[in-house]
Nucleic acid binder design. Sequence first.
DNA 1: GCCTTATATAAGTCAACAGTGAATTATCGG
DNA 2: CCGATAATTCACTGTTGACTTATATAAGGC
Lengths: 122, 122
Amino acid sequence: MHAFDVLGDPVRRRILEVLADGELTSGAVADIVQAEFGISQPAVSQHLKVLRDSGFATVRPQGARRLYAVDSTPLHEVDMWLDHFRRFWVQRMDSLATELARGKRGRRLATTHTATPKEDPR
Amino acid sequence: MHAFDVLGDPVRRRILEVLADGELTSGAVADIVQAEFGISQPAVSQHLKVLRDSGFATVRPQGARRLYAVDSTPLHEVDMWLDHFRRFWVQRMDSLATELARGKRGRRLATTHTATPKEDPR
DNA sequence: GCCTTATATAAGTCAACAGTGAATTATCGG
DNA sequence: CCGATAATTCACTGTTGACTTATATAAGGC
């Protein structure tokens, strides 16, 4: 299964998000996902299997539990594929940054925004 | 259709790649894709429709032809989702953002940028 | 050794999607 | 206007994948 197919499922994306904060048991993942998506435990287990088989997650047995963690390798590959297109938005951000760097504080913003992309002003 | 579902299809990914180099007519896209994947012209047209409907591509009629171009907005959203995991492979997670915020014009596009000017004392 | 908890697998159903060929719409050159 | 070309839409089919319930494996506590 290709990386993008794996990420195509919202349940799997959510699992990866919760695993991003640290490893969790299968049961802990299932509790979260079941609460949010209302699917059964076997369904979650099957998603975890997909994540395992496609390299997005690793497992470490601990007694009867299985501790899951993110393996970022395929995510990094996805990120690298995006390099084909990054110039499309880096250029925009760059010009915006330049504008800001020049102290152009004018409440201009009149570049006819079609949408307001929420940007993290960190 | 979610952005990741759109990107789940290899034909659609390829279409976006070829469009990344500049706009092309539907026919030009079809020629490339048909040569590489061996599918019919209507199949390509249907993929173009998916890309249109999901915001990945824009169309501009030019006589009897239709010129397709990439719209990077949903790709940018995908890129932002990856922020959840970028720390796994980027040491200085904020390097790009900082660079841009400072209006640094040496637009190195620092992908897989491993060199650190100073070692991190942890 | 049992019973319980934790997790995975099995078997089957259903909907969605990618593909096909045929038909349709639209534009151009004469 | 007409025929040719460009492209999309239609109607249908096969495959895939996500879900369910039921069951199996494995470890822990008593």
